[in-house]
Design a protein around this nucleic acid. Structure first.
Lengths: 97, 97
DNA sequence: TTGCCAGGCAAGCCGTCACTTGCCTATTGT
DNA sequence: ACAATAGGCAAGTGACGGCTTGCCTGGCAA
């Protein structure tokens, strides 16, 4: 299940989205779109970012909460923590995967 | 340049290769191919794995050393270390990328 | 030397992915 | 009520990625 995390992190635009959510939590789709455009020069359609957010949500890298007609996105760093340590630990070899 | 690391990690076969090299360092192409086949049930062509190794080497996740007609592969965990910490540190925000 | 073995190069196929476009639903403001 | 706003749901397109196949090169052993 957390195998999708790698796939989600593969795209640079999605990594920029994570950067934005790390900088300011609880942003809406249009906010993210605006900040990607101004700060990173990414002029993408609204739907493109919506699909990226769907991928990130499926990988559980972001959590969403609806509020009226707004949908706010929050970063969830939990899947990131034991992701790379899989190869970093050179001591006791326990196959926990 | 370490942006390719994410792309390299996106493929499950490549992650299995890293697992193998983490388990036994300095394996050759045919060794890796054999162990992927037996331990993970991956019956892939030699060339497929060669291409995967090329991607991993381009991302500097493995280092290679030629010795006669053999080419040995070693895991290099250096690019992995400050990869995920980009989103994990919630303290001082320095844009080092 | 001759043959075998480890590996590289290049083209081609096919599936997946990122992105767009068009249309539709729901909620808020006037 | 009506219009504007925030977002969702497809379907279609172009490009990239993984894998195969075929041929070629360098090193080692008999």
């Amino acid at each position: 299940m957390p195998e999708d995390v790698f796939k989600a992190l593969a795209d640079p635009t999605r990594r920029h989205i994570l950067d934005e959510l790390a900088d300011r939590s609880g942003q809406s789709l249009f906010e993210i779109r605006a900040r990607l455009a101004t700060k990173h020069g990414l002029g993408m359609s609204r739907q493109a970012i919506s699909q990226h957010l769907a991928v990130l949500e499926a990988a559980e890298l972001i959590r969403t909460r609806r509020q009226g007609r707004y949908k706010f996105h929050d970063l969830n760093t939990a899947p990131l923590e034991r992701l790379v340590t899989r190869w970093l630990r050179t001591d006791a070899a326990e196959d926990n995967r």
